[in-house]
Amino acid sequence: MLSIDGLRSGYGKSEALHGVSMDIEAGTVVTIIGANGAGKSTLVNTVSGLVPVMSGRMSFEGRDITDLAAADIVDLGIVQVPEGRKLFGPLTVEENLELGAYRSRSVKASEIARRRAFVFELFPRLAERAGQRAATLSGGEQQMVAMGRALMAQPKLLLLDEPSLGLAPIVVDRVFDTLAKLKGDGMTMLLVEQRADMALAIADFAYVMATGRIVANGPTDAMRADTRVQQAYLGEAGVFEG
């Protein structure tokens, strides 16, 4: 579905990704794990068109998307749940969701209503808080809004950048329950996570990143058995370096 080949990208003149290749099959969940600064977020943002590509190719459903603008990438069905949630704080929950469907303005109102109903069914809590300003929500609720906002665009591929960041353990469990539910519905997802244990439990395939490169990849079962990956869980940095 998404195919990345020899991707180099970065900020200004400094390169952050040094030739990354990966494939995501439709209907699967792929996770990227790795330490802080490994380039995971840069990869997600490059796929979204937010960070410029220096060289390499990306294609989605057979279409070249390397040079597409962020808006066009959303139109094709690649939607991001950004790191740190990035809600529109002064706006209500409902207005945040509406902005998620921003590119779907030509879609019928009934279809938008259907999507909203889907989001409220997934997160009943948001229905209760629809008129409340996003800034006043708890961290867990904000993560729900961020995910709901992305789902309003009816993505084919959902990019999740650290959805567990800054959340209490019990709330993290709830977020992963939701991801499992979405997976059950057949949603294709690319999940960037520091909580590698949980990410590997839900994903079908995993890539390990370090300093802007993919240093290991494979089906999650095999990855979990890999001693190097086990060491990386425990935070022993350096195993994949060099």
Binding site: G84, K86, G89, E95, A135, L137, S138, Q142, E162, G166
Partner: peptide, 20 residues
């Protein structure tokens, strides 16, 4: 944009964005 609706306090206001 809208007339104010009640901002009932949540369990605990979370921080917005940019923790990381």
């Amino acid at each position: 944009m809208k007339a104010p609706e009640q901002d009932t306090p949540s369990e605990r206001p979370g921080r917005l964005g940019s923790e990381a």
